[in-house]
Each structure stands twice: as C-alpha cells, then as structure tokens.
C-alpha cells in the first residue's frame, strides 16, 4: 500500500486546515458583522470554488502560480523558488479551493453571536480586535471546529486541482486520491482498494464528530 501518499494527504489536509483557520476566521467575522462596499462581490469570489469545476480552478491556479502569474511571481521574488509541482504549491491551491468550506460555517457561527455581546464588549472598552479574540472566537468554537473538520475532509478528497497544480510526485505532491486513480489505471485494484478503505473510517469519524457538535448546539 502507498503509505507515503496517505502521509502526504494527511499532511496536506492538516496544513490546509491550519492555513484556513487562521485566514478565514477574521474574514468570516468581517463578513458576519461588518458592512463595507464590495462585500457581496468579495463573498461571491470566496464562494466561487464551490460553483466551478475543479479543473477550471486548477487551470487558473496554474496560470496564477506559474512563473509569470501574480502568485508565482511574488513567491519567486521572495523565495527564489517555484510553486508549481511542490508541496507548498498544492497547499496554496487546496487552501484556495477549500476556502468556502471554512468561511461559510464560521460566518454562520459568528452571525449567531448575540450582537449585544459584541456591543457590551465595546462599551466595556474592548477594541474590535480584542472583541474578536476575547468574545467572538470563544463563543463560536463549535462553528470553527465544524469548519476545520469540513476543510480537512474536503482536502483529503481533492483531486482535480491538486493533480493540475502539483502533478504526481511521490512524497511531495502525490496524494492518496491521485495514487488511487493511478493504481486503477495500472489495474492495481488491490492497492486502490486498500487506500480507498482508509478513507471510510476517517470520514465516518469526522462526520460523526460534526454531528455531535451540531447536536451539542
């Protein structure tokens, strides 16, 4: 069995989850509680990956992350390296691909906070920044956990975007979903079955956890 691809998958899911928890929490809070020009456009852009075919997202990410693209150029300027066909590249791609799954549940959780709690924090002298950390985050933990689980699971299942941006380099960009596809192509049904089987308990446990969280609420 291709344990290495399983390891890359779990590593990618973990890194993507961490990146998206850090990036999406303030973004979702802003979308839940602030009014600003262009808000609905920003929101539509964030949710776009749910409506586009993964190969289309993958194509545009190749352009953006390539040596002449704005992400690739910036990355090259800072590190001197390339993003395409690297683990960092697929981590960036999967973060962009999975961002709606982080923002949506977090935004819903932040919207559920009684507005007066936020106002009480302001009246008690807390800045908007401190209110986010001391009031909003602790009172939205279940939504944030649900977002983390969704992102983790969504990343473990990603295929189209990752294969286009990262290819299939063993130990670097070949995740389990790509390994399963390649095993089937090579008629290695046993290898494909073993890897596929690993996903069932993983998904089951995580979904059970989400269910418990929802029931707890």
């Amino acid at each position: 069995m291709d344990f290495v691809s399983l390891y890359v998958t779990l590593k990618l899911a973990l890194v993507t989850t961490i990146i998206l928890m850090v990036v999406s929490a303030p973004l979702a809070y802003m979308l839940a509680h602030a009014e600003f020009p262009g808000k609905s456009i920003l929101e539509t852009v964030i949710y776009l990956p749910t409506a586009l075919p993964p190969t289309v997202i993958g194509f545009y990410l190749i352009i953006a992350m390539g040596p002449k693209g704005f992400i690739g150029k910036g990355w090259g300027f800072v590190t001197g390296g390339s993003l395409l066909f690297t683990f960092t590249g697929i981590a960036v791609a999967s973060s962009i691909y999975s961002i709606p799954f982080a923002v949506q549940p977090m935004k819903a959780a932040f919207q559920k906070i009684d507005r007066r709690l936020i106002e009480n924090a302001y009246v008690l002298g807390l800045s908007k920044y401190s209110t986010f950390f001391r009031v909003a985050l602790p009172n939205s933990l279940s939504g944030i956990m649900a977002a983390a689980v969704l992102v983790f699971l969504h990343t473990t299942g990603a295929f189209g975007v990752l294969v286009m941006v990262g290819g299939s380099i063993p130990g670097e960009t070949r995740v389990a979903s790509i390994a399963i596809y390649e095993a089937v192509e090579m008629m290695d049904y046993r290898g494909a079955a073993m890897l596929s089987l690993c996903f069932i308990p993983l998904s089951f446990i995580f979904l059970l956890f989400i269910n418990k969280l929802n029931r707890g609420n």
Partner: peptide, 28 residues
C-alpha cells in the same frame, strides 16, 4: 463607545456565556 468609559446594563442578559460570573464582572 470604548473611549466614553461608561457602564451600560442592557435590557436582558449580555454576560459573556463562556466566562464565570467573576470573570464577567472583572472583564474590564
């Protein structure tokens, strides 16, 4: 509101649910 330094007791409960009563009162 942060700089007005006032006390405001709302119509109904606006204590922070994740904190104990003492932590709530000592919040600011």
């Amino acid at each position: 509101p942060q700089k007005r330094k006032l006390g405001y007791v709302f119509q109904d409960y606006t204590l922070f649910p994740h904190l104990s009563l003492f932590e709530n009162a000592a919040f600011a």
